[in-house]
Design a protein around this nucleic acid. Structure first.
Lengths: 157, 157
DNA sequence: CATCTGAGTTGTTTATTGAAACCCAGATGA
DNA sequence: TCATCTGGGTTTCAATAAACAACTCAGATG
């Protein structure tokens, strides 16, 4: 029996994470917020998302602590709200980058990738790599072994 | 103007990729297929996904070339189909791993992660890291700069 | 006091999901 | 030979979520 089929889907970190961010819009909302699009109308306009859907996505992200609503006031305007990534939210940036990297490789035309991400300190392009604790780099099509971890739970049914 | 708001969402590798795998089920289907759950009924049973939805997800993944249907025959049974990741499909494994890593850190209880992924060659646990071409390791909350790439396109509207 | 603006909410229509029934073809057994 | 089983799906129809448009609300602004 393979390592996954013995453990149910609800006990999987991928399943849990996808419950939070696994719909058509949430990742794109996070992408925009990560890139400094912070205001409701800006987000709605840039994404082309329906306002009620944006509202509910932001509420979910905010409840989950990935995004925080903070008040700001521009001179001569009343107080407004903006959205920023929290610490846990910023830790999702690598997820965005791996997804982008895959899309760059497999879904961008001959012109090449639409956006390049660079290390802000040195200007060099950024990429994600899979490494093991022994320091081996695993490449694109890694050979992996799965094992039940400490939080595993045998499927009840 | 920030680097994203000047370029429309459709020209973004994240948006393109999410069109393919950005729904509640597709990532989980890929996770299971990556882990050797290859048959329709096994997938349906393990995931708890509706069969029509599984059917349409597999069709989309197969059309996109992430998964291939291959025939096999067990002794004394008729020919059947199974699903396997293609090369591009296997290249999504790092995406699964970063997502899992985030979930392990932020959504698993005090018991720890439900599943541990190891390098099959050496047995050491695997993780993803963000590095730049200069070799700097960027950590969890990287400081990044975005630039239009060669495939960028100014938003028409 | 009427109007504008950002930030949503409400109501209605349309598209997606989910559950269950049904179909099909090739074994299998009576 | 005929009925039944099994894996691998499709079809149908009710329930859920998303899209779109209109409306609200509160604090500037003229």
């Amino acid at each position: 029996m393979n390592p996954f089929s013995a453990y149910d889907s609800g006990t999987c970190s991928i399943a849990r994470t996808m419950e939070l961010i696994g719909d058509r819009w949430t990742i794109l909302v996070l992408r925009d917020v990560a890139n400094g699009v912070r205001r409701f109308d800006e987000l709605a306009g840039h994404l082309g998302i329906a306002r009620n859907v944006l509202s509910s996505r932001l509420a979910r992200l905010s409840d989950a602590g990935l995004v925080e609503r903070t008040a700001y006031r521009e001179p001569g305007a009343r107080e407004r709200l903006e959205y920023r990534l929290t610490g846990p939210g910023r830790e999702l940036i690598p997820v965005l980058i791996v997804i982008m990297q895959w899309g760059d490789r497999h879904l961008s035309g001959p012109e090449g990738p639409p956006v390049v991400v660079r290390h802000d300190d040195c200007g060099a392009p950024v990429r994600t790599t899979l490494t093991c604790a022994e320091g081996h780099e695993l490449g694109d099509r890694p050979r992996l072994r799965l094992e039940p971890g400490p939080g595993s739970r045998v499927r009840s049914s």
